[in-house]
């Protein structure tokens, strides 16, 4: 077969490139772009930090809560964090617009604080993301369960014995 046929076909079909930056190129839904983090859904298990091959995810435990940071320039967009996150608090968006000036390279990071959960009765520290864990563990959550989950073990014991009046 002659290549002329292919050439004629290609001339008729027109260019196969997209008009970027004058037109928006198509980005598939599965595209692994910039990492996004939802502090409200995080349980503080730090699995994402463990599996991150580039060390792009760092956690730092402070008085006001668990500080989360992701360095987008280190991120390899491999999707390990999203795959292994039990509550899907971390995910990869379709955003690939990551071009930036050299001077901005250390600013290309996102921070968030996962607040410490406090016992609603005595105010004791009961870790992180208790609501997120309960939502992850049970299909539906009764108000009573929700109430008990927000108590420290001592207050929960006391509340259980009393019949957990809400």
């Amino acid at each position: 077969m002659s290549f002329l046929k292919v050439l004629v076909k290609n001339i008729v079909a027109g260019p196969s490139t997209v008009a970027y930056p004058f037109g928006e190129p198509e980005t598939p839904a599965a595209y692994r772009g910039r990492v996004a983090f939802d502090a409200g859904a995080c349980t503080g298990c730090r699995m994402c930090e463990y599996v991150c091959p580039a060390g792009a995810i760092r956690f730092d435990e402070r008085d006001d809560g668990l500080h989360f940071a992701v360095w987008h320039n280190s991120c390899a967009n491999c999707g390990h964090c999203a795959h292994y996150c039990p509550t899907k608090a971390i995910r990869l968006t379709n955003d690939w617009h990551m071009a930036h000036l050299q001077s901005e390279k250390y600013a290309l990071a996102d921070h968030a604080v996962v607040p410490r959960a406090r016992c609603t009765r005595c105010g004791a520290d009961i870790g992180y993301g208790t609501d997120a864990i309960v939502r992850h563990a049970y299909r539906g959550v009764a108000r009573q369960t929700e109430h008990l989950a927000r108590l420290c073990p001592d207050c929960r014991r006391a509340a259980s014995i009393k019949g957990a009046s809400l």
Binding site: Y50, V51, C52, P53, A54, A76, C78, H80, Y84
Partner: peptide, 10 residues
Amino acid sequence: RRNFWQNIVL
């Protein structure tokens, strides 16, 4: 110097 999961990506 990396754990088994990090090495998948490496």
